[in-house]
Design a protein around this nucleic acid. Sequence first.
DNA 1: CCATGTGAAAGCGTTCACAGCC
DNA 2: GGCTGTGAACGCTTTCACATGG
Lengths: 258, 258
Amino acid sequence: MATSRNHRPATRASRGIPEATVARLPLYLRALTALSERSVPTVSSEELAAAAGVNSAKLRKDFSYLGSYGTRGVGYDVEYLVYQISRELGLTQDWPVVIVGIGNLGAALANYGGFASRGFRVASLIDADSALTGRTVAGIPVEHSDELEKIIAENGVSIGVIATPAGAAQQVCDRLVAAGVTSILNFAPTVLSVPEGVDVRKVDLSIELQILAFHEQRKAGEEAPLEETAPPAAPPAAAVTKRPDSGPDGDVPAVMPA
Amino acid sequence: MATSRNHRPATRASRGIPEATVARLPLYLRALTALSERSVPTVSSEELAAAAGVNSAKLRKDFSYLGSYGTRGVGYDVEYLVYQISRELGLTQDWPVVIVGIGNLGAALANYGGFASRGFRVASLIDADSALTGRTVAGIPVEHSDELEKIIAENGVSIGVIATPAGAAQQVCDRLVAAGVTSILNFAPTVLSVPEGVDVRKVDLSIELQILAFHEQRKAGEEAPLEETAPPAAPPAAAVTKRPDSGPDGDVPAVMPA
DNA sequence: CCATGTGAAAGCGTTCACAGCC
DNA sequence: GGCTGTGAACGCTTTCACATGG
């Protein structure tokens, strides 16, 4: 999801296609591309759903927002669907992007083959460190961040990827937006604030791990008692009501009653 | 979201805490940690919500699932909340993780400071390329994938990160699971299939960009007519009904009426 | 008074189950 | 007969608005 208070009015997804569906279209597209490469002519919703890791009812519902592109009793024409979904996602256009921050992550992104094959063209790699300037990563020269505005203007870039350290992210974001970028993919662990009309999506490496840890804890906590590490910090003051179900124990020792 | 047909029964979130709330706890935790470092003693739901990029009603509702940890008329005690959320997420425990696939992305993950500071300890970096074996990345030695099972057993690893090319991902996943890993964070662009009881979360770099492109296209399409690149592929055969609203035009030229 | 905590209402997303069409 | 397309039911999530309590 987008990070800031802007984004679209939240209600009513773009062009009538629900946001949840949009988020799955790339998944379907990948599965379809694989089928296409194996020259499979048609798929049923059941098969395609399995390949994409969703259930078939959801897939059919998703496709129904795009139009009636299947054939009853038969399934979907693979090539045709590939085209329709690509078009819907805007991948039949060319999207020049810039990647700002060429550390390991920026380099990984530059090397990632999944971009080029989907209409994304890395117009430039940008870093503030002049030691990197002039080098090439994945065949693309790294340019200095002084050139940022120029690069964006000359290439008509509207999508920017931020892979800088957290401290630099907002500043980079501001410059990108001022230069005309209206969509930002943010890998820095910060909440970016952007003006109305600019979309921000966030990918946070550690958040995903934390969510896994939560579930992992539950699995373990169900049988093994397993003690916590440090004793708790100081609670605030008064009523610490803690919910009815006090889980697998491990609650704080209820300290300092005002 | 998790990728495979397994995961929990979907309905009824873990321990009564809704999944959507769990996904936001790391966000709150980060904002709270920042406040804590600035020695701020208390926050209101309004302030904290702004820092985390959500609205205050949502935040209060989220916290209400954890317990009544605030003080009416005052707000929340920062230190106390940090502890409560950490505990809820299981971050007061030590979580050894392995990262498999030490390319640019794996290296970026190994270098990512956000892990260590949140209870995650990279027990080992694993790669199939013996040329890497023995080197260290972020101070952690890279070990050969032959050792995978041994490493997992010896370190009690239950969380694995897959940063290999797509082709190797399922195989690596199978070995991780067989060795006892029950939570997997997958960066490879593949749908992993895992047995019941194993959680998979996916981070897909190109999917995020594609979602941005979708919205970007809409912004542009609203005013500029803007022509598409290639003419469409062959449609299937019969009824191509296309929905009532035919968007900003740009539909396929309605070909080949059987 | 002020900000939390929470029922109740509204909005989305998913699933069901079957009508419709090939 | 088989598979798509879709209304209707259901459940989860968000938002509202206010009672509650420091």
